Simulated assay, not measured.
Amino acid sequence: MTSRVVLISPATSPALRQARFDDGGPIDDAGAARARAVAGSLPRAARAVISPGVRCRETAIALGLPVEDASAPAGLDVGRWRGRTLDEVGAAEPEAVARWLTDPASAPHGGESVQDVCARVGTWLDAAARHDGRTLAVVEPEVVRAAVVHALGLPAAAFWRLDVRPLTATELSGRSGRWNLLLGHPLD
């Protein structure tokens, strides 16, 4: 049995445009319009799941996907940094930010480490492989990063070297614990 998981990153949001840690805000009007415009380009799927965040839910709605199943992993929990920009946090806590960006086991914000999110997403991805057919998952960019790290057996430190653009699809196909990667491509 070959499973396919297509990870779709959410549309643009004010937090994304401001380089702000996700604050639970909505997608912006331009992002919603673009998602509606590309809705017909999505591949057929046996099931669709979303991350529980607002921007993933709104992106799924704009793409015309069902939003009842919020079983896809949530984004990285950044604790007390939620809603702040990286520049703001870097000015207030430069050593903590440096440690967080270089040590995947570090969580100076009081939330989740990169290592932890990679393990959590890896567990979800392995469970998704047991479903027959294609799964579409609208997930936060850090979930896409963590899934790629897990699928390719990369060290957790590679997490920060992966860029995920809005409204792109990253497809993973697997059989017997082995994943292949179709790199992210824009939906159009």
Rank of each mutant, 00 (worst) to 15 (best):
R145Y: 10
P108K: 10
P94D: 06
A45W: 01
A60G: 15
G110E: 14
H131F: 05
E171D: 04
T2D: 03
V54P: 04
P166R: 13
A15G: 10
G174C: 02
I27F: 05
L76C: 04
G122M: 11
F21T: 06
G174I: 01
A91S: 12
H109R: 14
L181N: 00
L65G: 01
V164M: 06
V139N: 09
R4V: 03
E68R: 10
G122Y: 00
P43R: 00
P73Y: 07
G83M: 03
A45F: 00
D69T: 00
S51K: 08
A147Y: 00
A11Q: 06
D28W: 13
D163W: 09
E88N: 09
V117C: 14
A74Q: 01
A19M: 15
A129S: 00
T168G: 02
P166K: 10
E58F: 12
E112V: 12
T135F: 02
V67R: 02
S176D: 15
A158N: 02
V148W: 07
V89K: 09
M1V: 02
A35P: 03
S106C: 15
L86T: 11
R165Y: 05
R161N: 15
V78T: 14
V143G: 06
E88I: 05
G25L: 08
T123F: 05
V114Y: 09
V121K: 02
S51V: 12
V149S: 05
P186R: 14
D77R: 04
A157P: 03
V143R: 12
L183V: 03
D116K: 05
R47E: 12
A39C: 11
V6T: 09
V117R: 15
A37F: 05
A46D: 04
P52G: 11
R120Y: 05
E112C: 08
A15R: 09
A91K: 14
Q18W: 12
A74L: 01
V114G: 11
G31S: 04
D163I: 14
T12N: 13
D22F: 14
G177C: 08
A96H: 12
A46G: 07
D23Y: 00
G75E: 09
H185Y: 15
A151G: 02
G174D: 00
F21I: 11
E140M: 06
P104N: 06
G133I: 03
G40K: 08
T85D: 02
C56P: 10
A46W: 01
P166M: 09
A169W: 03
E140A: 14
R55C: 07
R36G: 03
R80H: 12
A98D: 13
P14T: 12
Q18N: 10
V38G: 07
